[in-house]
């Protein structure tokens, strides 16, 4: 199986500390890779490096074997969907305008966009009646569904989700988890999913990447992490959440 995204010796420092130490990581095609670890360990940093909201200090990031550069990033961004915890919806645009913003920008016609929009509403279980509402008129769960539609609109090859369910109450979260899992299964898409909830990681993850203090500590299936911990931190992290998860 080939790597869709490959990080080679990628590191990132902020003034006072390293957010990410030199790191090698492959994101496999068609799989859901979950980044997990304590707060501040560098999960978001890693995602933001891939979509190049920040520049790496060293190393390079490959997309389908090609290094990502400032020249090709704008084209690549159209092939990547990105969803953040707060949704990132533009408040001055309706749900519909948010979703089709990029499609309109690349020149899709109304006739092309409409069926896709319907398809996405079905996929994310979002009522079409709500499409004309503004973000402030939607609930948190509905907003995240719209964010997801926006990320999926141009049928991206890679979906980057940074704690997409982090701000939702447990009931909404549970229902969205279920829907998301279905969506991933149907789309057979490459997904990188950030969470700090082990249960969520196990629920979604084909591959789990455990991080701590700017380093990838271990990568593998959850059983690997439980049975062959690469570091005492791995057991510690798993045991801390054990009461909540039945392994």
């Amino acid at each position: 199986m080939s790597a869709l995204v490959k990080l080679v010796n990628v590191s990132k420092r902020y003034a006072d500390a390293a957010a990410l130490h030199p790191t090698n990581l492959s994101i496999e095609h068609g799989k859901t890779t979950v980044l997990i670890g304590p707060s501040g360990c560098g999960k978001s940093t890693l995602l933001r490096l891939i979509i190049r909201l920040i520049q790496p200090d060293s190393g390079s990031i490959m997309f389908e074997g090609e290094p990502i550069t400032p020249d090709n990033i704008d084209m690549l961004r159209r092939r990547i969907g990105y969803v953040i915890q707060e949704g990132g919806l533009f408040p001055h645009l309706t749900a519909r305008s948010n979703v089709v913003l990029m499609a309109r920008y690349v020149g899709r016609s109304q006739e092309e966009m409409q069926p896709r929009l319907q398809e996405l509403c079905d996929l994310t279980r979002f009522s079409e009646n709500l499409l004309s509402r503004y973000p402030v008129e939607l609930s948190g769960g509905e907003r995240q569904r719209v964010s997801l539609m926006r990320a999926l609109m141009l049928s991206p090859e890679l979906l980057l989700l940074d704690e997409p369910l982090g701000a939702l109450d447990p009931l909404v979260r549970a229902s969205l988890q279920k829907d998301l899992k279905e969506i991933f299964a149907r789309l057979q898409e490459t997904v990188v999913f950030v969470t700090h909830d082990l249960a969520e990681a196990i629920y979604f993850g084909d591959e789990i990447v455990l991080m701590n203090e700017g380093r990838v500590i271990q990568k593998g299936a959850v059983t690997d992490l439980r049975d062959n911990p690469a570091d005492p931190f791995v057991s510690e992290f798993i045991n801390a959440q054990r009461g909540l998860v039945s392994l």
Binding site: M75, R77, I80, G88, L89, F90, L101, M102, R150
Partner: peptide, 12 residues
């Protein structure tokens, strides 16, 4: 977060 969303979408 909104600035970054606009960038990440790929808008010029």
């Amino acid at each position: 977060s909104l600035r970054e969303s606009a960038i990440a979408l790929g808008l010029s």
